[in-house]
Design a protein around this nucleic acid. Structure first.
Lengths: 199, 199
DNA sequence: CAATCTGTACCGTCCAGACGGTATACTTCA
DNA sequence: TGAAGTATACCGTCTGGACGGTACAGATTG
């Protein structure tokens, strides 16, 4: 019984986790079935039992990635003070939490998708536009939402590439972004209703 | 005489351009010497004459990428209204110009670098911190600079992955970001000195 | 002559995926 | 109860192809 490097209950999860680790450490080009299998403590056959082929593995990695953040964003929405930018604030804070808890490794899998096939990003692009539409319906101007969203995405990428990884710095940027949204909300609705702080 | 898809005077440039196109269209994983040579209208031997091996090609792609933006940023600094955020504004506007003129394909090569070896990003990380230090010395708070910088980088990435590519949308975001910097400058130095618009 | 290629042939390695086999738990039914 | 069958969850090996890189013999241009 060889203890796999990646702790996970079932093989399926540990394989996905292993794949993310391989990408982070060695780059997407070196994401091979053998490497993932070895890292997950599973044989190649076992890996292919769960994922019919490499593309299936990549797709699985991709579908998990955005869910992690969005699910958490939904969870914290009720805890936030009301306002036209509440959802946007929830996205910022969800990003912070996901980054802080180290659960965002899945992000590097988005880079991986680009490495294998840029067209795999079509759903992400659609989702992005949906967000902007949804958030702007609450009152914030689209260019503003877009700017904040880009900063969040930039943070994702920079952290998943280990370009920016300082925890304190991240907290500062998150606070800055939340502050920007709050300021914009105040600008739009001069009648109080702000000042709430997360946690 | 087969007309190469990529128009460029000399082979060296056309090979680099071809490599960027291959990455954009097919993903970094499919960046093969054969594919690049074919795309550049050059034989494989010809390609290897210019780039001893694949790594040399990738390194060449990487070194070009940041220079494009930074060189242009330096050029437009003198045309901008003074203020503690002038350099940051120049970076925003340089990004816009480089994106608009389609010269930023080199950006996808940064993704490529991650695909091959995450450690290739070390110099970029250092450069990033240098920027923040330099810009903050002019008076803007670091978290603010960081937030704007992340948005710029997010825009880079999103465009190079063809996730966000709408020209009008880009203009709006750029204007938004510049506006944010100007507002911050006004907040810091209440004594006039703002209002300048690029072009 | 030298630089800048083209074109072909080839080698070694890596890797995706197929495939056959194994172990075990659960069900069926006589 | 127990033999037989079936589904699930893997393991380990093999093969064919793709790819990086080498070598070299010319062709073209200045």
């Amino acid at each position: 019984m060889t203890t796999p490097e990646t702790s996970a209950q079932n093989s399926y999860e540990s394989i996905l986790a292993a794949a993310e680790e391989v990408v982070r450490e060695s780059g997407a080009v070196h994401l091979t079935l053998d490497a993932v299998a070895a890292r997950a403590g599973v044989s190649k056959g076992g890996l292919l039992y769960h994922f019919r082929n490499k593309e299936a593995l990549i797709r699985a990695m991709l579908t998990r990635m955005p869910m992690t953040v969005l699910d958490h964003a939904k969870d914290i929405v009720p805890t936030l003070p009301q306002g036209p930018g509440r959802d946007l604030r929830s996205a910022i804070l969800a990003t912070r939490d996901v980054l802080a808890t180290g659960k965002m490794q899945g992000l590097s899998s988005s880079l991986l998708a680009a490495a294998y096939d840029p067209s795999l990003f079509a759903p992400i692009r659609d989702q992005r536009y949906e967000f902007i539409e949804k958030y702007s319906a609450q009152g914030l101007p689209k260019p503003f939402i877009n700017a904040i969203l880009l900063a969040i995405e930039g943070l994702w990428i920079m952290e998943s590439l280990s370009i920016a990884t300082d925890a304190r710095e991240r907290e500062e940027v998150i606070a800055q972004l939340v502050g920007m949204v709050e300021a914009e909300e105040r600008r739009l609705t001069p009648t109080g209703g702000s000042g709430g702080q997360h946690e």
